[in-house]
Write a protein that binds this DNA or RNA. Structure first.
Length: 562
RNA sequence: GCGGCUAUAGUUCAGUGGCAGAACGCCUGUCUGUGGCACAGGAUGUCGAGGGUUCGAUCCCCUCUAGCCGCCCCA
């Protein structure tokens, strides 16, 4: 069991019958998008890391700690191996992982130092190769030489030589990992903070990278990149694009939150002359989303709406907020005190009940909007009112990504726990320019498909099991198997959904299997084969009928037969 | 990344420091071309992985891994 491979953390398999629900959701989304004249775009699942750093924002959590990034096209570089081993020496806080690169020749002094502080007994280390395992650690590494110092160094040097001499070797990806396990009772050990175990990783990389690549953590940046790259703005037309596909973020998994997750999203983007900046576009998207959720069968959604204005507005608001927080922040929770310094906007998200009255007294961003943003937002709301799309203004709705401007929104649904947002989005008037493209205002959203499925499953509760084949063909003897296949072929060519049994089964077993997977059972014995009159039994009515072979397809697909 | 809870049959879960349990599901028979019901029988597990304590560990201790919940943040 310990040897079997499993889906890695935060990823999962989607199996029938749940996949049917996924397909239904996607089909409904495609149908709605088509009616609103959106076309599908498929962008690569990985892009240049710089795209996300610039587009999503260097300072966001997504970019700073949640991306799957790797160095592509690495080359061996001896110089680069000599880096930063000193960071271990000046470690003030031993509980933090030391992210550094080790020169292989320096591992020996490192070990000496570790011996000096009394951890030699527990040091395990070695060269790790992709696809192999270091005991009790990251699954992709193996420990060649546990608990042996000089031999481990030899192994490292050997691996380095191999990598140099064979550029195609998988050793090109060799990393050195050193794992230190400090005994729990080493109270006076400077590496131990608690009476517990501290683990430190020391990682070295033999290679220079030609390019840094990242699995997409969201799709808007990729869509805008494609818009720029293909000069879609040159058409002068508004681009209305939707996508459905996997995204990747390295977060702690929870229900409705996975490391590979699927988003359904859409973007409206184009030159201002095409009307891309019009509040009508905002309203159209929101009205479309209301339609989509309704058609998906989501009831009880809430649309929360806000405007964060231009980036200048937001900066002004940030200052106002910071100023307003100064006199009151000391009465707030610890998180808020931290946020007040690092990211005042996040104070608005605080869920601590005691803080709510204070938050209510803080300035709202609506008061910091310039005239243009104010007019824009009013027009969006007027259009929604006219269309009868219900919404609530939420002054605290401030989206996390850097590129949002003006309209921001979120559709939420109860019953998702802490992950109550079904979808979120907003306007990003400056994103194209941030990525070096032409001026191309846009607005878009992304819907968490995994959460949508959860919501729908909770609503459906059962009954996804109505998906059954039209008929199950039960040959009565193994000698009739070939004839059964011929019959199945006939019916399937006529468009029927057919399951094929096996003549090796006893009839009782055929019935049991058939009842689980199909609405009818067709019995194929010698008599039926000779006469061309088949025995068909309907499971819901229990009625058994003799049907001529030529009429089978009609009989099976006629509702009256049920 | 932090904190809490959890991990036992295909599934949902009981349970005990001394040979591993139930329900459902699965298989077989009663029933040689008629299921759903009933009855009788049967199979299934490295008790998540590794180490420790012990004469003996699925149970106690440590570590790792994974899931769930909360935080951070977000879809």
């Amino acid at each position: 069991m310990s040897q079997t491979l499993k889906a890695i953390r935060g990823t999962r398999d989607l199996l029938p019958p749940e996949t049917a629900l996924w397909n239904r959701i996607e089909a409904t989304a495609r149908d709605v998008f088509a009616r609103y004249n959106f076309g599908e775009i498929r962008t690569p699942v990985f892009e240049d890391t710089a795209l996300f750093a610039r587009g999503v924002g260097e300072e966001t959590d997504i970019v700073s700690k949640e991306m799957y990034t790797w160095e592509d096209g690495e080359r061996f570089n001896e110089q680069r191996m000599i880096v930063d081993w000193e960071s271990l020496n000046r470690s003030d806080d031993p509980t933090h992982v030391q992210a550094g690169r080790a020169h292989v020749e320096r591992l020996s002094p490192l070990l000496t130092q570790l011996n000096a502080i009394g951890v030699q007994r527990e040091v395990t280390w070695g060269v790790a190769l992709p696809g192999q395992q270091l005991p009790g650690s990251a699954p992709e590494f193996v420990c060649f030489r546990p608990r042996i110092s000089s031999e481990a160094i030899s192994a490292l040097l050997e691996a380095r030589e191999l990598a140099k001499s064979d550029p195609a070797s998988h050793l090109r990806q060799t990393h050195v990992r050193l794992r230190l396990v400090v005994p729990a009772n080493a109270a006076d050990n400077p590496w131990v903070e608690r009476h517990d175990v501290t683990i430190q990783w020391f990682e070295g990389n033999f290679f220079d990278s030609a390019q840094s690549l990242t699995l997409r953590p969201e799709n808007t940046a990729g869509v805008v990149r494609a818009y720029i790259e293909h000069g879609l703005g040159e058409s002068g037309q508004l681009q209305k694009l939707y996508y459905i596909g996997p995204q990747f973020r390295r977060e702690r998994p929870q229900k409705g939150r996975y490391r590979q997750f699927s988003q359904i999203g859409a973007e409206v983007i184009g030159p201002p002359s095409a009307g891309s900046e019009s509040p009508l576009r905002d309203a159209e998207i929101l009205e479309m989303l209301a339609t989509l959720l309704d058609e998906l069968g989501i009831s009880g959604w809430t649309l929360e709406l806000n405007s964060v204005g231009s980036s200048a507005d937001r900066a002004r608001y940030n200052d106002a907020l910071r100023a307003a927080l100064v006199p009151v922040v000391s009465q707030m929770c610890a998180d808020c005190q931290r946020r007040a310094v690092t990211n005042p906007l996040r104070v608005l998200d605080c869920k601590v009940p005691a803080d709510q009255p204070i938050i209510e007294t803080l300035p709202v961003i609506a008061d910091s909007l310039d005239e243009a943003s104010r007019v824009h937002f009013a027009a969006v709301m007027a259009a929604l009112d006219a269309a009868g799309v219900p919404y609530t203004r939420n002054h605290r709705l401030v989206r996390g990504l850097d590129y949002y401007t003006r309209t921001t929104f979120e559709f939420t649904h109860g019953g998702l726990g802490a992950q109550n947002a079904l979808l979120g989005g907003g306007r990003y008037d400056g994103l194209s320019e941030m990525l070096g493209g032409p001026r191309a205002p846009g607005i878009g959203f992304a819907m968490g498909e995994d959460r949508l499925v959860l919501t729908l499953l909770a609503a459906l509760d059962q009954n996804a099991a109505t998906l059954k084949a039209e008929a199950y063909i039960a040959p009565l003897d193994e000698g009739l198997n070939a004839d059964a296949l011929v019959l199945a072929r006939e019916l399937r060519h006529q468009g029927l959904w057919i399951e094929l049994g096996d003549g090796g089964f006893r009839l009782k077993k055929s019935f049991e299997a058939a009842d689980k997977t199909a609405r009818h059972i067709i019995i194929l014995g010698e008599d039926e084969l000779k006469s061309g009159i088949l025995t068909v039994k309907n499971f819901s009515t229990g009625i058994q009928t003799k049907v001529p072979r030529a009429e089978l397809a009609v009989f099976l697909s006629t509702p009256a037969s049920e």
